[in-house]
Design a protein around this nucleic acid. Structure first.
Length: 400
DNA sequence: TCTGGGGTCCTAGGACCC
DNA sequence: TCTGGGGTCCTAGGACCC
């Protein structure tokens, strides 16, 4: 039987959510003017996190440098992000979606899939999707697009059609008419590099891709990816709506300096900061990591990276930091200016048993105590922040 | 114009084992 | 001296997503 999947996508999520918050504080609606969510306008490295539709009409795009957008539109309204608020908006919207179908997969903070196959009871999918979209708008004050498809891929492609506040369908029977004329770049998983490759072989549209032999495609992009692209271009995707959110496989943090740095003490301070952040997060989620990795990015954006295995899975900041420091000295010449530094951990386990080696470094106990105090300070700061938030107005849907 | 931050998955080559 | 094939783990690098 044919499945019915909805993909719900918040329109310009961070911008819409900021607009709702500002409206509540008596400000005008920034969705109606060229506006963006971004970092400090005085930092030349700030990039755009979200843009309003009037801003997009001027050619301003997500991930573009803010300085560039300001040149295009000097009157651009720039607002900062508010993660706590975004999380609340996200929770509100997911909750409403879940009330339409419990078979829900959250795909990101502002997107989810719901499987409506056994939920329509003969009702028209478009009417049901419209009811969902209008309920979100009415209760939470922001708009979404709903894509209706025979599978997740088609639903997601459909929600990307005309925006905002729209419902679109992309059923298997509509693939040739609605999807094949689109450029290859519009297909999920076709990014800049793959598009370039395909264009150089004259493959311009999703239809071209769909009708290309799998052997030729394999030579271009590798066997596995070729198979997936071929299936997707033909509108096929049998992946289920996953209701269980998968556990994290890695954690990482990175810092970009406001100007490139070449002093070891500066790089090291950043490394220390990201090590604290990453180690804190794995402790919070009761993980230990066996692999530590670090990277540096130079001004031309080339990356040098190193990874290593630690003898015992660890969640100790100092252990992680020391590995990262050692790898930094191996990967960096100590002279070339560095734009960004990052640190990550992977190969995670929930192993709580710590094998006590006779030769265990006696400093480890001291390190653990340091971490415990760090976590405590973090928890206190977090409580204080949540408290100030409780006093603020929640998205209107939550306040009943 | 000059590019953030946080993830997932894949590939290819080398080491090492049987 | 030169010769298999298969499997697993590790590392570096690259592509994509939001």
């Amino acid at each position: 039987m044919e499945r019915v999947i909805f993909h719900i996508d918040v329109n310009s999520a961070f911008l819409s959510w900021t607009a709702v918050k500002m409206l509540g504080e008596g400000h005008p609606d920034i969705r109606l003017v060229p506006s963006v969510v971004s970092g400090d306008p005085n930092d030349r490295r700030s990039i755009i996190t979200a843009a309003s539709i009037p801003a997009k009409k001027l050619g301003i795009k997500t991930a573009q440098p803010l300085s560039m957008a300001m040149r295009v539109c000097p009157t651009l309204v720039v607002v900062g992000g508010d993660w706590e608020w975004y999380k609340r908006c996200s929770e509100g919207f997911i909750e409403i979606c879940r009330s339409y179908s419990p078979v829900l997969q959250q795909f990101s903070i502002d997107e989810c899939f719901i499987d409506m196959t056994f939920r329509l009871y003969g009702k028209d999918p478009v009417e049901e999707a419209t009811r969902l979209k209008d309920e979100i708008k009415g209760r939470l004050g922001f708009t979404v697009n709903v894509g209706i498809g025979s599978n997740k891929l088609l639903a997601k492609m459909a929600s990307d059609f005309e925006k905002p506040d729209k419902v679109h369908t992309l059923l298997e029977s509509e693939v040739q008419e609605k999807m094949w004329p689109l450029g290859v770049r519009d297909l999920l998983w076709v990014g800049k590099k793959t598009e370039e490759k395909l264009l150089s072989y004259g493959i311009r549209t999703i239809g071209d891709l769909a009708n290309l032999g799998i052997e030729s495609l394999s030579r271009l992009v590798g066997k596995k990816f070729a198979f997936q692209l071929h299936e997707n271009a033909n509108g096929r995707d049998n992946s289920p709506v996953e209701t269980e959110s998968a556990e994290a496989k890695s954690y990482s943090a990175e810092r970009t300096f406001s100007k490139d740095l070449s002093e070891l003490k500066d790089i090291d301070r950043a490394l220390f900061n990201v090590a604290c952040v990453v180690a804190h997060r794995i402790r919070r989620d009761s993980f230990r990591a066996s692999t530590v990795s670090m990277f540096i990015k130079y001004k031309d954006f080339t990356v040098a990276q190193k990874q290593c295995q630690v003898p015992q899975p660890t969640d100790i900041t100092a252990v992680i930091l020391n590995e990262a420091r050692r790898m930094l000295s191996e990967v960096w010449d100590g002279v070339t200016p560095i734009r960004q530094v990052g640190l990550g951990v992977s190969k995670l386990t929930h192993e709580s048993y710590i094998q006590m080696s006779l030769f265990e470094d006696p400093k480890l106990e001291y390190y653990r105590e340091w971490d415990r105090q760090y976590d405590e300070r973090k928890a206190k700061a977090e409580d204080a922040r949540m408290l100030t938030y409780e006093r603020k107005k929640r998205p209107s849907g939550d306040s009943e």
